[in-house]
Amino acid sequence: MSLVNGLPAHVLLVHFVVVLVPLTALALVVCAVWPAAARRMGLVLPVLALVTLVSVPLTTGAGEWLEKHVGSSALVRQHAELGDGLLPWALGLFVLAAAVWWTTRRSAAQQDGARSGSVIRIAATVLSLAVAAGAVVDVYRIGDSGAKAAWQDGYSKTATGSADGDG
């Protein structure tokens, strides 16, 4: 995918990633910490994580196309390198979302309070917190580098006038 309505697809797709990764991370942490929320969300949690996972390679693929159509700079290369590192985080979100969904579903069916189930839930909660934090920080770093690559020297720090008569 290269262009959508005349715009580089990456510029549009990146908004899905910027919204979906933190949203999935938040939902994952809430469901891992609060089993009642996981039961209420049900299959929505792993489906959300799957949509997030699919959106990452679509966005990076479109970004690779865009990288070939803009001037190369250190900022663009840094952004591309950081962007390539998001897929493992998205995969981690998906795997943990599926695990939290599965363990919540399993524990609701058993109602035993088995010791092994609580150990798995604790491990899933700790891993969910770590992966969610890592994914959100990575999205921030990627977005920051992308904004710098796109806007570095692309605007004036002082107002140059305005089309609506403010300046």
Rank of each mutant, 00 (worst) to 15 (best):
T103C: 06
D112E: 07
W101Y: 15
E81I: 03
L87F: 12
L127N: 05
I120W: 02
G117K: 03
Q111A: 15
A90S: 14
D84M: 09
E81N: 00
D112K: 12
A114C: 03
A98H: 01
G143S: 10
I120Y: 03
H79E: 00
T125Q: 05
V100N: 11
G83L: 02
R105W: 12
D84W: 03
L129D: 03
V95H: 03
R105Y: 09
S118K: 12
W102Q: 11
L129G: 13
L82Q: 11
A109E: 13
S107N: 15
S128F: 03
I142E: 00
Y140N: 11
V139G: 04
L91F: 10
A132I: 01
G92C: 09
Q111G: 12
A98V: 13
T104K: 04
A109C: 07
F94R: 01
R106T: 07
S118P: 00
A132Q: 02
W102D: 09
V136L: 06
L96F: 05
V126C: 09
A108D: 15
A123S: 14
P88S: 08
A123D: 02
G117Y: 00
Y140C: 11
L96V: 04
W101T: 09
A97W: 04
L127H: 00
S118M: 11
D138A: 15
A99C: 11
A124Q: 12
T104S: 15
L93P: 05
D138H: 14
D84G: 15
S107H: 12
R115H: 08
R121T: 01
S118Q: 14
A133Q: 02
A108T: 09
S145C: 06
V126T: 10
A130E: 00
A133E: 03
D84Y: 07
G83R: 02
Q111S: 12
V119C: 00
R121C: 04
G85R: 08
T125W: 00
S145K: 06
A135E: 10
R115A: 11
A114K: 09
A124D: 07
A108P: 11
L82I: 13
A99W: 07
A114W: 14
P88E: 04
Q110C: 05
T103A: 13
V131N: 04
E81M: 09
A130T: 05
V137I: 14
G92H: 01
A98D: 03
Q111H: 12
H79W: 02
A80H: 02
E81V: 12
V126P: 09
L127T: 02
A124R: 06
I142M: 10
G83I: 01
F94N: 08
A133T: 15
V131D: 09
V137E: 10
R105S: 14
G117E: 15
I142L: 08
